[in-house]
Design a protein around this nucleic acid. Structure first.
Length: 421
RNA sequence: GGAGAGGUGGCCGAGCGGCCGAAGGCAGCUGCCUGCUAAGCAGUUGGCGGGGAAACUCGCCCCCGGGUUCGAAUCCCGGCCUCUCCGCCA
């Protein structure tokens, strides 16, 4: 979230960001509450000071063996009044927090303003495959080869779930291992994470309160299934003050991701394009504020390296303000071209959240020589989302006879297998 | 799931309901001393918020949230977490 003081001092900037991100504008309400909050604080603290002084006098009187019953009687009134004020302060602060949690991050100045039509396609990499036959979509390929079973997924869990079998399942595992190996070679520390997290954790990275409808919630224990490893991975040190010389922290984790996709019914329903559960390898960085935009470029390059190694054609998009997520200040999307469905599939979003998430989760860092703790910047990016990466492999590497050539870098991870036929 | 123990500052560890934001120790920092290091001596070292240009000042913080009280680290209730034992279990 944004610093209350910053909001107070830069209302126009904040209002513009809200408009650019198409969020509800509750700024005036927030500012009014903030004024009330400070009024109450002034009052309640004066009262408490009075109370503290008088209370000390009671102690002294009693110690000296005197009678303090009059003073005590007078104090009771002051004490009650302070308590009542404290209660209204608590209420105002809760209201402020609820509003504050719904104010989006401010887009960085180099982010194009506008809706998704203002997104900038920055560059293309690789050649789209030129197939001498009409490429089949992955669900046809997969079902024919016996490596994908959509019906079985629906059978056990309903629509939006799928099953991989044989070489399909193995390729998914191969991709996970390959990605983890690449990223750890680039200095990311591998993590295994909980898939269920608390509401507080969801709030830390910005999923709650806004996206409550998009997540699976376990009622009995009040836990949420993670929609991305970003959530547990970024929150690992939430609430703590970490030594700044531990920065930058680079972490990678493979987890399944669970999404209700409540707003997306009827969209991309075939195959593995949009599903309720999918695997993803995620990169997270916690860095010094002054380096975060450089780190974003490096993060993007680390994600791109996977697509390049797999020889999959892709493009890089810089998202416009209207397409930017609630918590992000700047974001690049990586989209892979997939021949069967003949579209660009988003396989990674690389974002810089600056101090927005750190402030929400109260994650701070202590400067090397000591001094005031500061909010580090957090970043994340998929490296990469699995089903769509695999879709692109199946569809781009398919042959006229219906088999799939396995990308070279994956062959060692597939036990030497070079083709799925 | 059952029974017990415990959560205090960067760490260890004390703490009768009233100068306790908290003894003492360690670690850190600053002086002094000293060929260097160590030791010794003295001082110093938390977070958040309000006011102030600033020096500074006020309030809150002893796991969290309530309660009792003029006054709570200290008493009461609830929760969370950690540890030990038993049971169950991949």
């Amino acid at each position: 979230m944004l610093d209350l003081k910053f909001i107070r001092e830069n209302p126009d900037l904040v209002r513009q960001a809200i408009a650019n991100k198409n969020e509800a504008d509750k700024l005036n309400e927030l500012l009014a509450l903030d004024g009330r909050r400070r009024d109450i604080i002034g009052e309640v603290e004066a009262l408490k000071h009075q109370k503290n002084v008088a209370s000390e006098n009671v102690a002294k009187t009693k110690k000296a063996g005197g009678d303090a019953s009059d003073a005590i009687l007078a104090l009771r009134a002051v004490s009650d009044k302070a308590q009542a004020l404290d209660e209204s302060l608590r209420q105002v602060e809760e209201q402020i927090l609820q509003l504050q949690l719904r104010i989006p991050n401010i887009p960085n100045s180099d982010v194009p303003v506008g809706d998704e039509s203002a997104n900038q396609e920055l560059r293309y990499w690789g050649e789209r495959p030129s197939l001498a036959f009409k490429p089949a979509p992955h669900w046809e390929l997969g079902e024919t080869l016996g490596i994908y079973d959509g019906a079985a997924g629906a059978n056990v869990s309903g629509s939006g779930f799928f099953v991989l079998k044989g070489a399909g399942a193995k390729m998914q595992r191969a991709l996970v291992s390959f990605m983890l190996d690449r990223h750890t070679a680039h200095g990311y520390i591998e993590h295994r994470l909980p898939y269920l997290v608390t509401a507080r954790t969801m709030q830390g990275t910005g999923q709650l309160p806004k996206l409550a409808e998009d997540m699976y919630h376990i009622e009995a224990d009040d836990l949420y299934l993670i929609p991305t490893a970003e959530v547990p991975l970024t929150n690992l040190s939430a609430g703590a003050i970490i030594p700044a010389d531990l920065l930058p922290q680079k972490a990678v984790a493979y987890t399944p991701c669970f999404r209700r996709e409540s707003g997306a019914h009827g969209k991309d329903t075939r195959g593995m394009l949009r599903v309720h559960q999918f695997d993803k390898v995620e990169l997270v960085k916690v860095v010094e504020p002054e380096h975060s935009y450089d780190e974003l470029e490096l993060l993007l390059a680390d994600a791109e390296a996977i697509l390049q190694a797999l020889k999959l054609p892709y493009r890089v998009k810089l998202l416009a303000t209207g397409d930017l997520s609630f918590a992000a200040a700047k974001c690049y999307d990586l989209e892979v071209y997939s021949a069967g469905v003949d579209t660009w599939l988003e396989v990674s979003s690389c974002s810089n959240f600056v101090d927005f998430q750190a402030r929400r989760m109260n994650l701070r860092a202590r400067p090397k020589g000591g001094g005031k703790p500061f909010f580090p910047h957090t970043l994340n990016g998929s490296g990469l989302a699995l089903p769509r990466t695999m879709i692109a492999i199946w569809e781009n590497y398919q042959t006229a006879k219906g088999s799939i050539i396995i990308p070279e870098v994956l062959v060692p991870y597939m036990g030497g297998q070079t083709e799925i036929a």
